[in-house]
Amino acid sequence: MNNILVQTKGLKVTFSAEAGMFGGEARVVKAVDDVSIDIAERETYALVGESGCGKTTLGRAILRLVPTTGGQVFFRGEDLSSLSPEAMRSLRRKMQIIFQDPYASLNPRMRVREILAEPFRTHEPKMSAKDVDERIAALLSVVGMRSDTMRKYPHQFSGGQRQRIGIARALALNPEFIVCDEAVSALDVSIQAQVLNLLSDLQKEFRLTYLFITHNLSVVRHIADKVCVMFLGKAMEIGDTEDLFARPFHPYTKFLIAAAPVPDPTQRDRERLLLKGDIPSPINLPPGCRFSTRCPYAQERCRMEEPEAVALEGRAVSCHYPLV
């Protein structure tokens, strides 16, 4: 089948709240805990989960924007941790990121031209100013903006337009892999649809591979080929989108799908599956399965023993008692 473009093997990221000058207890949060995923070339891979599940950190760790504490990341089979800083810097043109907040992702003190010139200034220092301008104009037209926007500052644009500028910056160096971190979550529905369409057009045109990080399940279902459902730093279930949505094996997946509101009032009286309680604190995880405190199917074993990921009909499920 397709080649694997990006792969993580047992990736771990821990954050520790540092102890103060005169000692004190350092607290450790396992933001990403032993996650292995394979992203095939030219597919859209979605990471889904609620806040604190580590999806954003995993995306950053793949791009080596946060330090990892264990495991490896491979890009085209190459272990990124083995690369020299110089080699990593030049590899960055192949892997890019689009951010959630179109207000924070553009430097307010730079004009659009300077923002979009930065990739070229970093990786093609010899390129002439005129060539850079031409490339910028081309980029702007690719994301559906006029080239005279170059002279403006970010605060002169609406959220949707800024997101297009962010996308243009990510595209500048012809990357192969783009992490879309909640790229449409901050946008209004009608603008969200425009940007989703743009992203899928760009994927076709430039043969991009996306890692799409979101909490919005309907967006996942629309755009993703493969899904990894995360909960408190761990992959709960990985599988093909259609399949996974139609028949979730992991109880968490099932409840997550059921929790999304349905935009159809005739279905409002359907039987509702509701999870009890809150997401446990990532600082002191429950023993055993980390979902066991909320899981209505949890049994004795779930509270004692942490489940390993098992292969099940082409999926990876971390559950002792999957819903087959």
Binding site: V189, S190, Q192, A193, L196, S200, L217, S218, V219, R221, H222, I223, T241, E242, F245, A246, A260, V262, P263
Partner: peptide
């Protein structure tokens, strides 16, 4: 504009 939650219209 809402991405389809019914499941048939992907892509």
């Amino acid at each position: 504009s809402i991405p389809d939650t019914g499941g048939t219209g992907r892509k």
